[in-house]
């Protein structure tokens, strides 16, 4: 089975977000980066599927030059090769992103049987790239998947819903977006990291089309105006806490 997983490089923001002076990006000085959480689980899922069924895993990203770090990290946990669509400093909106992904996959010699995405990226959270790619490639899709198995050439996917899970069966090739919790991504081994340095990585520089959802600026949400009431320090605060709970009616 040949699986393609799309990932995105996102910063690790910690407790506070600060913006650049032009307010068009996060200030990432001194921030670490990672693959967006849902997507890391997607790569782990692909690697596990291929370990069971045979095949190969390609990891793909549309991102700046530094995103190579994330591609190598994903190859260290088992992806076999990487495709790096090098974007410039500007953001790509969901339609542009999907078009770039579709073009890259279209150019592939071996077409994937399964394309995995994260349900939404940690930063922009647009919830739509996977579905756009699916329609463009003429593939069925399902989102929010927490479990994938295969039966007679179909992907059986469990989507989390309120009160349980819906089971979808998709004919392959298909597009599935997964959610964190589908698995626990493995910790990369050093032999894996060293091999990853040598695994094939194809880079290209797609041209960014004009944005249809055109970001103008980023804004920090207004302060909630909350004034925290300190109920006390240590165990002595317990009575004050209980008084609050009683007031809220949860006691």
């Amino acid at each position: 089975m040949h699986i393609c997983v799309c990932v995105k490089r996102v910063p690790l923001t910690g407790g506070k977000i600060t913006l650049t002076d032009d307010q068009r990006a996060l200030s990432t000085k001194h921030l670490g980066f990672t693959v967006s959480p849902h997507e890391e689980c997607g790569v782990e899922e692909a690697v596990q599927i291929v370990e069971r069924e045979g095949g190969s895993v390609t990891v793909l990203t549309l991102g700046p030059a530094e995103a190579e770090e994330q591609l190598r990290d994903m190859m260290a946990i088992g992806a076999d090769r990487a495709i790096h669509l090098v974007s410039g400093a500007e953001e790509w909106d969901p339609q542009a992103t999907a078009a770039a992904v579709v073009a890259a996959i279209g150019a592939e010699e071996q077409q994937p049987d399964l394309i995995l995405f994260g349900n939404e990226s940690a930063d922009a959270g647009n919830y739509q790239v996977a579905i756009r790619v699916a329609h463009a490639l003429g593939m069925p899709s399902v989102t929010g998947v927490k479990k994938i198995t295969f039966e007679s050439g179909r992907a059986v996917c469990e989507q989390e819903v309120a009160g349980g899970r819906d089971i979808y069966e998709l004919a392959l090739p298909a597009v599935v977006s997964v959610k964190e919790g589908i698995n626990l991504p493995r910790y990369p081994s050093v032999p894996g990291r060293l091999r990853a340095k040598r695994k094939p990585l194809e880079a290209s520089n797609p041209r960014r089309p004009a944005a249809q959802l055109e970001m103008v600026k980023l804004v920090l949400p207004p302060d909630s105006g909350k004034q925290m009431q300190v109920l006390g320090t240590g165990a002595e605060a317990a009575p004050a806490v209980v008084a609050v709970l009683s007031e809220l009616g949860v006691l």
């Binding site: 690790l12 923001t13 910690g14 407790g15 600060t18 000085k29 001194h30 921030l31 670490g32």
Partner: peptide, 10 residues
């Protein structure tokens, strides 16, 4: 994050 608690280095 360059520190074992994952706090922002900033």
């Amino acid at each position: 994050s360059s520190n074992p608690w994952g706090h922002p280095q900033g």
